[in-house]
Design a protein around this nucleic acid. Structure first.
Lengths: 345, 345
DNA sequence: TCCCCGTCTGACACCGGTGTCATAATGTCG
DNA sequence: CGACATTATGACACCGGTGTCAGACGGGGA
C-alpha cells in the first residue's frame, strides 16, 4: 500500500498540486469540472491530507490542549468529553495537560507545552480559568484560549460559566424553606473562584430570608473528601448542632454524610445535607445528596467551539477583526434527593 | 520577538543547518568545539525545535493516543495519569480518544483517528485490550500499540496487566475465612475480559475451600451502578439470603450496599459486601468497601513506556530487530474496610 | 612519499502541504 | 475591436526540520 500524497492526486487528476490544495481548502477560483476531477481522484485513491505537513505550512497543529488541576475525576472527564465533542466536530484533536496550580514552574510548564506541542489553543478549566498571571501570559504570547467556569468576566476573552452563585442561593433557600435556620457551610478551595461564588449565594439566601449569618457555622474546606471529613468533625460536634449542612461540593457533603451516619444521626431527620456539582457520588450513596447540577460538558463544548472559531478566524487574514468577547452563562439546576426532606411543592 | 528556527541557530553559531540538526539529535561525528558552539547558540537564542517540522521530516508526531470506552471515570483518569507520566518523560504528548466498543464504525473511527492525527502509537485500555478485530487491524496497518489489562497474552504485543483472577480469589477467600459460605457474585460486563477473570477467581476460591458453587447466587451485571442495583434487588430477596456479596467492581458493590441499607440490613453483620478496583467511592461511602486495588497508573505507565521504546526503535534502521513480546503482570492488593468483618489475623 | 581510511562538515534534495505571483483564458465595456 | 478586469491554473519558493552524499582534513601503514 503506497502512500497517497497530494502529488499522487495531482497527477492522477491531471492538475497541479496547488489546484488540489485549492479543492482541499474550498478555495474559490476552481472551475466546476476541475473540482469534480479532483474530488473523484480523492475518492478513488482514498486520499487523506497529512495534517502534519499542513500544520507545518500553515503553522497550525489542529490540536487544542485542556489544562486542569482538579481532584474531581468525574468533573475532569465531563470536561474532557464536552471538549472532545467540539474538537471532533471541527477536525481538531484534544490533548490533556494536568498541571499543578501551585507549582512555581507553572508558566514554564505551559511554555514548554506550547513549544513541544504547538497547540492552536488552550482551554482553561478551574482553577486556571481565573489565574490572572496565566491569562496575562497567554495574552502576551497571543495564544488563543477559552475559559471555563471563570468568574472574572471583566475582560475580552471567551468565557463560559454556569451560575454558581445562583445555584448556591437556591439550595440554601430550599433548606431555609424546609425550616432550617442553623445552616452550616463548608467552603471550597480558596484558589477556586467558585468557592467565593458559592459562599456568596449562601449568604445572599440567608440575608434575603432574614436569617442572621453566623460565622462559627462556616468551615474552610478545599473540595476534597478529606477536608469535608475534617469540617464535619467540627460541625457535627457544635452545640447546639446545626440542623443542616451545605457543603460546597458533593465530596465534602459525602464526607459529612458518612460522619453523620457513623454518629448514628439520621439524615435528613437529625441533620439535612446538601452538596454541589451532582457528582456521581451524590446518587451513589445513601441517602442520595440534594445538590446542584451544572452543565459541565455543555460549558466546555461551547468554550471549545468558540475557541476554534477564534482560531480559524485569526487564521485568515485581517488581524483581530471583530474580537467578540463571548461570555456565556448557563443555568445550574437544583436536584433534590433524600439527604434533605422533600421540598414543599 | 522573532521566531527562532534552525537557520537562525546555524548562522548564529556559524555552522550549517545540518550540523545543528546533528547536535539536536545527539548524532556522532560532531567535534567537541562545534557542539559547544551550537549548544551555546541554543541557550543564547532560547531555541526549541519545531516538533511539527520534525514530525514531517521523520514521519512522526510524538503523540500517543489512548483509546477507551469505560464508564468508570476514576479508572479513566487513573489510566490517563499513568499514560501522561510516561509520555512527558519521553517528550510525547497524549491525545485521548473515547469511542464506542459496540459501534459498527469502530474501525473506521480508528482509521480516521490515525489519519487525522498521525499518532505514533496507541494505548488500548479495557475493553479494547482484548478486541481481536482491532488488534488485527492495527497489526496489519503496522501501527504500534500496547495493551493495558488484557487477558489474551498469547501473542507478540506489549501487554501490561494486573492479576485479576488472583485478586478475586483472595477477596473470596477472605470472605470464606470470615465464615461465609453463601457468597453471591455479580458479574461484570461481558465485553470486558476482566469479567471472566474475576469470576474465575471467585470459583477457584470456592473450589479450593470445598464450597459448592451455586449458580443461583450469580447475577449478570455490567459494571454500572445501575446494574448493581438491579442485581442487589434479586440477591437481597433470595431465601435464604446469602451472607456475603462479592461484586465485580466497586460501583456495583456500592449499589448493593445502598440497597442493603435501605432494607435496614446491617453491613457487615447481616451481610458482608466486597467490591473490586478500589475506586474512590469505596472509601467515600459508609461503611467503606473491602476491595482489590489495582496499580492502574503503573500499568499504563509501563505500557506507554514500552510502547514508546518500540516506536523509537522501529524508527531507526533495522526493521523489527528484537521484537520483545513484553508482557508484564503486576500484583493487585487486597484492601480491607468496614463492609466486611476484620480478617482474623 | 603515497594511499587508504575514519572523522567532521556542508550542499542539497526531500517530507507534504500552502502562499505568492505570473500567465492564459474568458468576459466586459466604451 | 482594443483596453482592461476577472477567473482559472500552474511554477516555484517556502514552512523547519532530516537524510544522503560528496568533499575536506588529518593520521597511520606500506
Amino acid at each position: 500500500m503506497k502512500k497517497i500524497t497530494i502529488n499522487s492526486v495531482a497527477s492522477y487528476a491531471g492538475v497541479s498540486k496547488k489546484t488540489v490544495s485549492r479543492v482541499l481548502n474550498n478555495e474559490p477560483n476552481v472551475s466546476d469540472v476541475t473540482r469534480e476531477k479532483v474530488l473523484k481522484a480523492f475518492k478513488e485513491l482514498d486520499y487523506t491530507p497529512n495534517p502534519i505537513a499542513r500544520g507545518l505550512a500553515r503553522n497550525r497543529s489542529f490540536i487544542i490542549a485542556c489544562l486542569y488541576d482538579n481532584p474531581s475525576k468525574s468533573y475532569i472527564t465531563r470536561l474532557q468529553s464536552g471538549a472532545l465533542e467540539a474538537c471532533h466536530e471541527h477536525g481538531f484533536n484534544l490533548l490533556i495537560h494536568p498541571c499543578e496550580l501551585r507549582s512555581q514552574a507553572l508558566l514554564d510548564n505551559i511554555e514548554q507545552l506550547l513549544q513541544t506541542s504547538r497547540v492552536d489553543g488552550l482551554v482553561l478549566t478551574p482553577p486556571f480559568s481565573d489565574h490572572g498571571e496565566l491569562v496575562a501570559f497567554l495574552r502576551q504570547k497571543k495564544v488563543p484560549f477559552a475559559r471555563v467556569a471563570s468568574v472574572k468576566l471583566d475582560d475580552e476573552s471567551i468565557s463560559v460559566r454556569s451560575n454558581d452563585e445562583q445555584g448556591a442561593f437556591e439550595i440554601t433557600e430550599l433548606l431555609i424553606e424546609l425550616g432550617h435556620k442553623d445552616i452550616a457551610f463548608i467552603k471550597g478551595h480558596p484558589d477556586h473562584s467558585a468557592t467565593e461564588q458559592r459562599f456568596n449565594g449562601y449568604r445572599r439566601a440567608l440575608a434575603e430570608h432574614g436569617i442572621e449569618y453566623q460565622e462559627h457555622l462556616v468551615e474552610e474546606g478545599n473540595f476534597s473528601y478529606h477536608s469535608g471529613a475534617d469540617s464535619a468533625e467540627t460541625i457535627l460536634h457544635l452545640d447546639p448542632r446545626p440542623t443542616a449542612v451545605f457543603a460546597s461540593n458533593d465530596y465534602m457533603a459525602a464526607a459529612v454524610l458518612k460522619a453523620a451516619t457513623q454518629m448514628d444521626l439520621k439524615v435528613p431527620d437529625d441533620i439535612a445535607i446538601a452538596g454541589f456539582d451532582n457528582a456521581p457520588i451524590a446518587r451513589h450513596i445513601w441517602p442520595g445528596l440534594t445538590t446542584i447540577a451544572q452543565p459541565v460538558e455543555e460549558m466546555t463544548r461551547l468554550a471549545v467551539e468558540h475557541l476554534i472559531e477564534q482560531i480559524n478566524q485569526g487564521d485568515n487574514g485581517d488581524e483581530e477583526q471583530q474580537k467578540e468577547p463571548l461570555q456565556i452563562t448557563l443555568e445550574a439546576k437544583l436536584i433534590c434527593r433524600e439527604s434533605t426532606a422533600a421540598p414543599k411543592s
